[in-house]
Design a protein around this nucleic acid. Structure first.
Length: 422
DNA sequence: TTAGTGGGCTCGCATTGCTC
DNA sequence: GAGCAATGCGAGCCCACTAA
């Protein structure tokens, strides 16, 4: 994307000299177009959206809600691909079941059997927290960017990739600048796996004995052996190394171009939909899938690593962040062009009612904005009343405080843009 | 009684900004 | 420019509470 040809962020073109203008200029100049880096992610998300269009048009996706589930699955597929950047030779998990396979797991459980017996100790290969934050922001930005392109809503997406700062993402058009906080976390991670032609053996004195299941093993020569992305229920998708930059990376070998990618997306979406239903029902449904999901609890993954925006700490931090940037930048903009939004891959399924519902129609102001008091009545200019957030945008469900934002970013709009008729 | 859940807290890591 | 403190973030541990 050629930055020079882009629209300027809305509030930077105004004639006022607000106190926050120079800081917003700073955000804008530091931000990268969402697709400036990671061109393979850009291309892959583009292919996924082509597939989503096909799935909408042939009836695999029948409404906006189902589209949200396919988008949630797409996010996790993209994150899983970025996680493959960290794959290394040590601490794979060997599973003896036929066919014997080894996995590079992200949870403390076997990606094929689910929960492990308590004796097994396996290293989970989750990247460090700052890396996860970069990955989730990059994936969400790439998906949002494609949403804007397909929906033709006129908005542009920029990423602030520094790990420090109050704002993670900018979304803007000629009228409005949306300052965004991203708090995202996957529901299901697809690990890398290798298939073994025969059960692994190890030296025990002078004889060879089978390697026990769920033991840690090393896998040599990763560049020259077939690697796969593993999906539950014995599905796996071949990966290939790509060397078009500084460091080789893994991408899906889709085989038949977009059609191959669509098959993968259909399989991942189907599995993801069951996990989402399981999570939403608090595992009264699809119980057997629980141990394959992030934040599943027990010894596999801490229950607080909940997907999307469902970690209570994140909701609290996120809402405070909204207040902070709204108080400073939304209030500081004289032309009232700044908005604030909390972004995630998945809405807080479990905690929305208790933690967020009460803010749906809430407004706040400052004491010194009160113009007149008449007994218990006070009058405040509506420009001085602020919502807790203008948009709580997630791929599965969103909440908007303005019709214009809803028109631009709702699942319903995207569903119609992809050819849906409901 | 036990397993699951959520709050409070610390830790490690990365980055930024200040001081010398 | 080096060293250090402050900050932001996610992971993970401990503990109290609760429901089965």
């Amino acid at each position: 994307m050629n930055r020079d040809s882009d629209n300027r962020a809305a509030c930077l073109n105004c004639s006022h000299s607000c106190s926050v203008k120079s800081e917003i200029e700073g955000f804008y100049s530091k931000a990268k177009a969402a697709l400036d880096s990671r061109s393979h992610l850009r291309n892959f998300v583009g292919e996924l959206f082509e597939c989503l269009g096909q799935m909408v048009q042939n009836g695999d996706i029948q409404d906006a809600e189902s589209l949200g589930i396919a988008l949630g699955a797409s996010f996790d597929l993209c994150i899983s691909l970025l996680y493959t950047e960290r794959v290394a030779n040590l601490d794979w998990l060997y599973c003896q079941n036929a066919p014997p396979m080894s996995f590079y797991p992200y949870l403390k459980g076997c990606p094929r059997c689910g929960s492990l017996d308590s004796q097994a100790t396996i290293k989970a290969h989750k990247p460090s927290s700052d890396t996860i934050g970069r990955y989730t922001t990059a994936c969400l930005a790439a998906i949002l960017c494609e949403m804007c392109r397909v929906s033709r809503n006129g908005f542009e997406v920029r990423v602030l990739d520094a790990s420090r700062g109050d704002v993670d993402l900018l979304i803007f058009d000629a009228q409005t600048l949306i300052l965004c906080e991203v708090k995202a976390s996957p529901l299901h991670l697809l690990p890398v796996c290798v298939r073994h032609s025969k059960p692994l053996e190890r030296e025990d004195g002078n004889e060879k004995v089978p390697v026990e299941s769920h033991q840690g093993v090393s896998i040599a020569d990763l560049e020259n052996i077939p690697l796969y992305l593993y999906l539950v229920e014995e599905r796996s998708f071949p990966l290939r190394w790509v060397s078009d930059g500084e460091k080789p990376y893994l991408m899906l070998e889709s085989g038949r171009g977009t059609e191959g990618t669509c098959e993968i997306l259909r399989a991942v979406s189907n599995a993801w939909a069951k996990m989402y239903a399981g999570y939403t029902s608090r595992w009264k449904e699809h119980t057997q899938l629980r141990w394959f999901t992030c934040g599943c609890g027990g010894s596999v993954d801490d229950s607080k690593n909940a997907p999307g925006l469902d970690r209570t700490d994140d909701i609290k931090k996120g809402v405070y962040q909204m207040l902070k940037i709204a108080e400073k930048y939304r209030r500081g903009c004289k032309e009232k062009r700044v908005r604030v939004a909390l972004l995630s891959n998945m809405h807080p399924v479990v905690h929305y009612e208790e933690y967020l519902k009460g803010f749906e129609d809430a407004l706040w102001t400052h004491e010194d904005s009160i113009q007149q008091r008449m007994g218990k009545m006070v009058s405040v200019d509506s420009d001085d009343l602020f919502p807790f957030y203008d948009m709580l945008f997630t791929l599965t469900r969103s909440w908007f405080r303005e019709e214009r934002l809803e028109q631009a970013f709702s699942l319903q709009t995207l569903y119609h843009a992809l050819g849906g008729s409901r």
